[in-house]
Amino acid sequence: MAEGNKNNTIKSILKLRDEARLEIYDKARQLDDQLETLKDIGYSRPLNNAETALLKKINAAKGSLYSAENELVLMTVVALDKSAEVTRFINVVNATNKDLKSKLNDVGAIAEKIKKLDALLQKVTAVVTGLTKLLPLLA
């Protein structure tokens, strides 16, 4: 999954993530059980050196599990980014945006077409006016 295989679907990517997450959470629970035992000891008597060392070791192990989950979610996002579903969505949204812009231009062009008609009328008017001025000279 880390390589973000293009054949992976969202469903398969999320399934892999969920399975790996469950394993991580299961290990976290085991560590927490050990931590609770140590806590009970610490509340009743001073922890000895070995127990203090174990406390640090458990915390370090929990830290590794956080890192593992961080890495897992990061790889999940990388894999999703390369999925065919994202490609499909990009194609749909780009095509839709293109169509909307084109229709907006079409609508804007209606007034432009009337303006062209107006310009044509003005040109013809100018020609007729010119011809009118020429008539006395031709007579």
């Binding site: 996002v77 990388v78 999703l80 980014d81 994202v86 490609t87 990009i90």
Partner: peptide, 12 residues
């Protein structure tokens, strides 16, 4: 980490 998803969200 997700350049294409970012692009897709920008397109949204």
């Amino acid at each position: 980490v997700d350049p294409r998803i970012r692009g897709a969200m920008a397109a949204v």
